[in-house]
Design a protein around this nucleic acid. Structure first.
Lengths: 344, 344
DNA sequence: AAGTAGCATTAAACCGTTTTAACAAATTCT
DNA sequence: AGAATTTGTTAAAACGGTTTAATGCTACTT
């Protein structure tokens, strides 16, 4: 690989001049410019990214950090990443996807700071260490999802209105006449599951009702497939308590598991069991039979907004903290209906 | 951000010693080690990634390069990326997703070399400039898909057996009795569309038949949604020539468009029209009605194998060229059947 | 004619690491 | 005891760029 010195030597100028030819920071005479460009082309010279970043104190790279435990992308993450990539694409930034295994991280012990100008953190947990880490080294950060308590108001983030959304959904099911609703929630400890759980409960209270205890189940944090969790937990819960007439699932994949459980128990959807999902997949959901009623989260917009927020933060020195709520919409298809009347 | 000099000063040693404490390349006395570590922790010191990379001539970063025109990921790319990420994850590498817009690239003009140790190139085109670029600067490269002619045997790649696969599929449809098969192929100029087109034709010849001319359509390179292309081209073709009894679509999304066109024309699938897709989505396809017959491409395995090949190449100095073929399987569901007998 | 301003170029300093070569001090070998 | 080796540490030299300050020109004022 040719260096700037090679080019300088080949064209008979100093390396400072070569640098200026490329960056156009200072005017260089036409004649010299051409000579340098010719030499650079002949040598297949490209400036070294690291050396440049070192002195510029900036890579044009953004980081996307997904918690180490789950490196498997689902539809939501994919869609979100599409949004991130689109904005990166427009602004000439690259994206560094950062999913180092905890095993590897602990092995290396003294890991270097990430080579990014800023970072997007996904799926914040209550007591998430990642945020404190970034604060110490002064790395600009935007979070997708509500940050844990101590950091609210201290860091910019993008989120759906999870409390309101969960309340709306629960109210919808309550209005249909359901009284015993199983909620297969996101993993305990994540802020999103806390918010949705709160919204679920709030809707009951507001209707003058009380949610049955033991009806909120959390997906385990470890990589158990959503599909399996939906299937197994729905099967167990429905078999144990036939009063359950509706299920709210965290994802469409999980809902697919619920469909399977219903089929096995001989429960028809939606006549005997209503199923709802916090789904983001507009391709998949309509193809369920019956088509899955859910909510559109606009994951791509979450990603795009987060990226914009981050870029904005990079541009200005001031550390303004912003919060963006991306609206979500109930999409009613065919998987929810009033509960069957109880016959003797 | 604290530097190594700060730590050195704070603990009263030279920076070389600090470096050695972290890298363990040379033994440092226990006493000094502790003093340095304490100072580092107090200052929240983390080694600077760029400076380290500069002298090491290695980042532990792999690049994933998707052609600039299409930055929108589909199911195939997602799945593939999952495979790449998984292997990266295991080996302590990060992934740099590289989708800079051509507009931006041309604006910057003299772009620096990518800050990666090696790169995975997706969707090679006939006459793809990216490969030559990487060769000139000596960057290790693995391609997913068959590289264009001049580079066969010069660069490692991972691919499905697209020729064989397309031939197998076409034979399957011929055996069912179809004679006029519309092929909605990948964009012209991509090596994958060439291979599949060749397989399609080969199956006809081998059966002593001849493919009808004008029955192979290529998706435009620009970002026209697959869904729309499937819908529009199928609608036009089926309306113009009622002899067509089967359609091979490039992706499941495209097949969805074909389904829509069939519905609009009042054609029942599979009785009046057979539909097939080179699909990789094991979640989506079974949910079509009728479930979509297709082929499992194992995109994740393509990604994982490509990554392994690349890492292997990085480890050893020798430039061995390897080719890995990932098997694909016909998955017969419910969208293909013998053509309807022709009644007067 | 001398002073000043502007332009193109360069030598040297710098960015934050790792690595090399040198160097004492402590240990082991004849 | 003196030479040879080992051990722990350091100053200085990379790595490949950018930026600063200085320099030699030419052209323009006064």
């Amino acid at each position: 690989m040719a260096t700037i010195d090679d080019v300088a030597k080949a064209s008979g100028v100093s390396k400072g001049t070569v640098s200026n030819v490329f960056s156009r920071k200072r005017p260089i005479s036409k004649e010299v410019t051409e000579r340098v460009l010719a030499a650079a082309k002949a040598l297949h010279y490209k400036p070294n990214y690291w050396a440049r970043s070192l002195v510029n104190r900036s890579t044009r790279i953004l980081g996307l950090n997904i918690r180490g435990e789950s490196f498997q992308f689902g539809q939501f993450h994919l869609s979100l990443m599409n949004g991130v990539l689109r904005v990166c694409y427009e602004h000439g930034y690259r994206l560094l996807v950062n999913t180092l295994s905890p095993a590897y991280l602990s092995r290396v012990e003294h890991i270097a700071s990430d080579p990014v100008d800023g970072e997007i953190l996904l799926d914040p947990l209550e007591g998430d260490e990642r945020i404190a880490d970034r604060f110490h080294i002064g790395l600009p950060v935007v979070i997708v999802g509500r940050p844990p308590g101590p950091y609210e108001g201290k860091v910019s983030y993008v989120d759906n209105d999870n409390i309101g959304m969960a309340a709306q959904v629960t109210r919808y099911l309550l209005d249909l006449g359901h009284r015993d609703i199983l909620f297969l929630n996101a993993p305990a400890g994540s802020t999103v599951s806390a918010d949705r759980g709160a919204g679920y409960a709030a809707a009951f209270w507001q209707a003058g009702l009380e949610p049955k205890s033991g009806r909120m189940l959390y997906k385990p944090l470890q990589d158990s497939p959503s599909h399996a969790f939906g299937y197994e937990s729905a099967l167990a819960a429905l078999a144990a308590s036939p009063d359950v007439t509706a299920v709210i699932a965290d994802t469409d994949t999980m809902a697919l598991g619920v469909y399977k459980a219903a089929e096995q128990l001989g429960l028809r959807i939606p006549e005997q069991l209503s199923v709802f999902a916090f789904s983001d997949d507009s391709v998949l959901s309509p193809e369920f039979s019956p088509p899955l009623t859910g909510v559109r989260l606009h994951a791509d917009r979450l990603g795009a907004e987060a990226t914009r927020l981050l870029l904005e933060q990079l541009g200005t020195a001031e550390k303004s903290v912003k919060r963006v709520l991306v609206p979500s919409e109930l999409v009613i298809r065919g998987s929810c209906a009033p509960p069957a009347p109880i016959y003797p």
